[in-house]
Computed example of a mutant assay.
Amino acid sequence: MAGRFVPRTHRAALPHQAKPPVAEGPVVSEAVTREWTPPGPLDLRLVLGPLRRGPADPTFRALPDGSFWRATRTPAGPGTLRVTARDSRIEASAWGPGAQWLLDQLPVLLGGTDDPDAFRPHHRLLALSRHRRPGLRLLRTGLVLESLIPSILEQKVTTDEAYRAWRLLLRAHGTRAPGPAGPRFAALQLYVMPDARTWSLIPSWEWHRAGVDAKRSATILRAVRVARRLEEAAAMDLPEATARLELIPGIGPWTSAETLQRSNGAADAVSVGDYHLPGIVGFALAGNRNADDEEMLALLTPYAGQRHRASRLILLTGHTPPRRAPRMTPRDIAPL
């Protein structure tokens, strides 16, 4: 119904109606480069995979040549990062105002501060999973908002619905990512997510068109109003960072854990409240597909300090309970 109230004249839009300017094409800039040798095996697909929000995520691309592209908004401004593994080295190139920040943070992003040896498997399944994936490290972006907003979008909906909302909002209100000249990069269609102010100016009908209900959009609006304070959580220990995020109404244990797993590389942040995870952990470790959060946490007790890593290793085994019902049908509130 919002369309009927769109002004029919050509008068200038009011500030709350104006869309942020979106570049017609990618911003061309010079590349800066860096090489880094990780302290051990490193699988870029496993490490960077959690940053990908669906197959058409406008901020992330994994190409057949083994390169991974990431567009993000850094404290220094928008930036695009390309990383590739060459033998035991990581080659990285970056573009845009945030290029140097991205290269400076490269080792941290790729798990250079993570300690996989701190994990001690107590189940055969986890021991095998760890042995088969020596290149798994927990990434750390150092950026809270870029993980928090898509995590809020994923609350209480199917992943397909959340991925669609993320995609539509970024393409409508984000900016084209900086990068090299040429059609190959332009074809990637990479976008940098909006800054906090732009998020706050998205009108209600745009949220609705993207399929985001009022509860989730209101939570995002509350978060972006205190974006600077939330970003400080990236440098905090897990308990303090969790408390900082959960001060915002609408952000609970699941959302804070999903965020801090990525922004802080939090090895112990368990996604309590997840629809599927308790049953997967219960089935893998105790044969109980009906486990709840309390039972999941009890099963993960031997991995205190490393419970998120244990959950990741379980998920990577593919040892999940067989389906007993059809998938949940995605909703689309946009036509309502």
Rank of each mutant, 00 (worst) to 15 (best):
M1Q: 06
R4V: 10
F5M: 03
R8H: 11
A12Y: 10
L14W: 14
P15K: 10
P15C: 06
Q17N: 08
A18T: 11
K19S: 12
V22G: 06
P26Y: 00
V28F: 06
R34G: 00
W36T: 00
T37Q: 13
P41V: 07
P50Q: 15
P50N: 15
R53K: 09
A56K: 08
T59R: 15
R61A: 14
D65T: 01
F68A: 09
R73N: 05
T74E: 03
T74H: 15
G77V: 04
R82V: 07
R82I: 03
T84R: 14
A85Q: 14
A85M: 13
R86L: 10
R86I: 08
S88I: 08
W95G: 02
Q100D: 07
W101Y: 10
W101F: 09
D104T: 12
D115L: 08
P116C: 13
H122A: 13
R124E: 15
R124Y: 03
R124Q: 13
A127C: 02
L128F: 03
H131S: 15
H131K: 14
R132Q: 14
R137I: 03
R137W: 06
L139Y: 05
T141R: 09
G142H: 10
L143E: 04
V144P: 01
L145I: 10
L145R: 11
E146L: 06
I149N: 02
P150C: 09
L153K: 13
E154P: 04
Q155W: 15
V157G: 06
Y163E: 15
Y163R: 15
W166K: 13
R167C: 06
A172M: 07
A172G: 08
A172W: 07
G174E: 11
G174K: 10
G174L: 11
A177M: 05
G179V: 09
G179E: 13
A181I: 03
G182S: 08
P183N: 12
R184K: 07
R184C: 02
L190R: 09
L190D: 09
D195E: 05
R197N: 05
W199Y: 11
L201F: 07
H208N: 01
H208P: 00
H208F: 10
D213G: 09
S217D: 04
A218L: 04
L221N: 06
R222K: 09
R222M: 05
R225A: 14
R228D: 11
L230R: 05
E231R: 08
E232L: 15
A234C: 04
A235S: 13
A235V: 06
D237G: 10
T242M: 08
L245D: 00
E246R: 12
E246Y: 10
G250P: 01
I251Q: 01
G252S: 03
P253A: 12
T255L: 02
T259N: 07
L260K: 14
Q261V: 04
N264L: 12
G265W: 13
A269R: 09
S271K: 14
V272S: 09
Y275G: 04
F283G: 12
F283N: 10
L285P: 01
A286T: 04
G287Y: 00
D293I: 10
E294R: 13
M296C: 01
G305R: 03
R307C: 04
R309M: 05
S311L: 04
R312P: 00
R312D: 06
T317W: 00
G318F: 00
T320I: 06
P321T: 04
P326S: 15
P326F: 04
M328C: 14
M328H: 12
T329S: 10
R331H: 12
R331T: 11
A334L: 06
A334M: 07
